[in-house]
Design a protein around this nucleic acid. Structure first.
Lengths: 349, 349
DNA sequence: CTGTTAGCGCGTTCAT
DNA sequence: ATGAACGCGCTAACAG
C-alpha cells in the first residue's frame, strides 16, 4: 500500500513537473533499500557496505533529495534553529550583533529565527514563549528589558539561553564592561583638564545604561571629584533628539560644564547640535563623548571620542557559547566580558 | 498503553519540575476527552458543546499548553515561517527592510527566518535551498545577485516568493523606481544650473545600480545633454572608500565637473572627503548627491541631497504581498513600485 | 550490515 | 458533538 502510494505520487510528480517533496521513502524505493538504510547514510551512522552507500548516494543526488527539517525536528527534538531576540534590528548596534550571530550560526549549520522585541517587555516575554513553541534549540537574548523574576522563569523553559548585555544568575552572559568603559572616558576627560563633567544617561531599564552610570560615579569618586546631581540628566529617548534636549537643559543650567559624557553616539550628536546652538565650541569650551563607535561617530563634526566594542564578535561569541552549552552538558554557565576600547577623536582630544 | 506512558511522563514532570513538553494527549486526558476534541478547540473547528469547550480551555491554561509548531508543521505542511534573505543585515538599508518585514510578519502570526547572503551568489542559492528544506511557507528575497536562469529555477521550488529590488518574470516584485529617482536628481542638478554632471555608479550586478544608471542616461539625454563616458566611474566598493577614490579620480581628471551623482550616501560621503582634499567647495564648486537618505546623510557637512524611500514600508509590503499570495491562489504575481522622494539639502541646493 | 516496528505531536479523514 | 484510525517524514530501538 505504502509503496503504491509512493509510486503513484512519483508518477504524478513526473507528469506535472511540480515537484512535491521527494521523501526518504522515494529514495529508499529507488535504491531498493529500506528507509532506515537511507537514514543511515544521511547521518553517517552505523556501518554500511560501500556498495549500498554509493547506490543510495547516487539516488539521493539524482532525485535531488533533501531531508525535511521539520520531520527531523519532530523525530529528534532538535531543530538546528536558534532564536535571536533583539530590542530592534533596525538599530545598527543590534544589526551588527545579528550579523555576527548569523555568521556563527550558519557556520555551524544552524539557522536564526529573528525576533524584534521593539523595546517592549511584554512583547519580549511573548517572543520567548513563541520560540519555545517553535522548539528552537536555544535562544540568544539581547539587552533584555524583562524584570528578573519573569526573565528567570522564561529562561528556565529553554534548554539553553545566552544573555547579551544583561546579567542573570544561572545563565551564560556575554557583556561589555560598560562600567569600565565609562570609567575610561572619565579618566580621559579628567586627564585632559576637564573640571566639571556632566552625564547624559540612558534609560533606567537598560542594563548598559545603569552600568555606565555606575562606572561614571565610581571613577569620579575615585578621582576625588564630588558628585553633583545637577550635572546629570536622563535622556527621554536615547537618540539625537533626546541628546539635544538633555544637552540643552544641562548646558543652560550649568554653563560651567566643560565635559559631557553621553550614553551613546546618537545622544552625543544631539549634544553637538545643542552646543552649536548655544555657541559653545567643541572641544574648546566643552568636550563631548559618545559610546558604541557607530558609523556616525567618525562622520559628524567634530568627530566623536567614543567607546568601541566589536559587536559582530559579541554576537558570534554569544552564539558559539550557546552551541557549546547545547553540546557539552557541562559548559553550563559562562560569563564573558568584552573590554571596550577608547577611540579618541576631535570632540574630546 | 499510550495513556499509561503519558501518565508516567506527567508524574515524572511533576516530580522533577523539569517541564518536558505538555502534549495534546496530556490535555485530552486531564480534560477527559479525546485528542481531536482538544485539537478542535485549538483550531476553532467543528461544533463543540460549550461545556467541553470550557473544560478543555481550562485544562489548556492550567497546564500552560502550547501546541508544538513542528508537529503542526509536519501535519499541515505549513510552518508559519517566512524566510528573509538579504545581502547583509548589518547594512542599515537591509536592516530597515528586515524590521518592516518582521513587523508585518509578527502581526500576522508568522516568524522570520533571517538569512544573510553576505553578497555571495553561491551562498544565496544555498540559502534558498536551505529554506526549502526547512519548509518555510514563503520567501522574501532582497536584492538577489543570482543570474536569472538559476534564480528562476530556485524560485520555482518555493510556494511563494516576493522579490525586492529585482525583477523576474513570473514573480511578485516590490521595488523602488530607481531610474526615476536618478532622473529626478539629474533634473534637480540641471535645474540649479549645473552643466557637467558626473556619475559614480555602483556594482554592475546590483539591479538598483543598473536602474539608477539607466535613469541617469535617459534623463541626461532627454535634457539634450551629450553623454561623456569620461564623466562616469564605477566604484570598486559601494562605501566611503569606494566613493573617495572614484571621486578623486573623477575630479582630478575632469576639474570642470560641477555636479556628482553618487550611487548612495556612503559613496557621496567619500566624495565629500575627496572634495575637501582637492579644495573644491561643496556646493559652490561642485554639487554632490547621494541616495537612500541614511542617517548620515543629514549628519555630514554639508548635509546631503539624497533620495529617500520608506524601507520599512517596503519590507512590510513585501511580506504582506507574500502572505496574500499564500492565501489567495490568485494574487499570483504583483508588481509594486515605490516612488523615491528627493530630499534637498546643502550639498546640492 | 540491513530491515521491521514504533513512535515524535499533531491534523484529517471517517464513523458514531 | 465526539471518538478511532491513519498519515505527515524522519529517527530510534531492536531484530536478524
Amino acid at each position: 500500500m505504502s509503496d503504491n502510494g509512493g509510486f503513484i505520487r512519483l508518477l504524478f510528480r513526473y507528469e506535472t513537473r511540480m515537484s512535491l517533496h521527494v521523501t526518504i521513502a522515494d529514495v529508499a524505493r529507488e535504491a531498493g533499500v529500506s528507509r532506515q538504510t537511507v537514514s543511515r547514510v544521511l547521518n553517517n551512522k552505523g556501518e554500511i557496505s560501500n556498495l549500498t552507500l554509493h547506490r543510495v548516494q547516487q539516488v539521493i543526488e539524482r532525485l535531488d533529495y533533501r531531508p525535511s527539517s521539520i520531520a527531523r525536528g519532530l523525530a529528534t527534538r532538535q531543530t538546528r534553529t536558534i532564536g535571536l531576540i533583539v530590542p530592534d534590528i533596525a538599530n545598527p548596534y543590534f544589526a551588527d550583533i545579528g550579523r555576527g550571530a548569523d555568521d556563527a550560526a550558519h557556520e555551524a549549520g544552524y539557522s536564526l529565527l529573528l525576533c524584534n522585541a521593539v523595546e517592549d517587555p511584554d512583547r519580549e516575554a511573548e517572543l520567548l514563549r513563541t520560540l519555545e513553541q517553535r522548539a528552537v534549540d536555544g535562544v540568544v537574548l539581547c539587552s533584555s528589558r524583562l524584570p528578573e523574576p519573569i526573565l528567570t522563569d522564561l529562561v528556565k523553559r529553554h534548554a539553553a539561553v545566552v544573555l547579551i548585555n544583561r546579567v542573570l544568575a544561572g545563565s551564560s552572559v556575554i557583556c561589555v564592561d560598560d562600567a569600565r568603559g565609562a570609567a575610561m572616558v572619565v579618566q580621559h576627560l579628567l586627564g585632559s583638564g576637564r573640571r566639571r563633567i556632566g552625564l547624559l544617561a540612558g534609560s533606567q531599564i537598560s542594563h548598559s545604561s545603569r552600568e555606565r552610570t555606575r562606572g561614571f560615579i565610581e571613577a569620579m569618586t575615585a578621582a576625588g571629584k564630588e558628585l553633583d546631581p545637577a550635572l546629570t540628566r536622563r535622556c527621554d529617548s536615547q537618540d539625537m533628539d533626546g541628546g539635544y534636549h538633555a544637552g540643552l537643559s544641562l548646558l543652560t543650567a550649568r554653563p560651567d560644564v566643560d565635559g559631557v559624557i553621553c550614553y551613546n553616539d546618537l545622544v552625543a550628536t544631539g549634544v553637538l547640535r545643542a552646543c552649536a546652538e548655544l555657541g559653545r565650541r567643541v572641544p574648546d569650551d566643552v568636550a563631548v563623548t559618545g559610546a558604541d563607535d557607530t558609523l556616525l561617530a567618525s562622520l559628524v563634526t567634530p568627530a566623536l571620542t567614543t567607546l568601541r566594542s566589536d559587536r559582530q564578535a559579541i554576537g558570534a561569541t554569544a552564539l558559539r557559547t550557546l552551541l557549546d552549552q547545547l553540546h557539552d552538558a557541562q559548559g553550563a554557565c559562562n560569563t564573558l566580558v568584552f573590554q571596550p576600547e577608547l577611540i579618541v577623536r576631535a570632540s574630546a582630544p
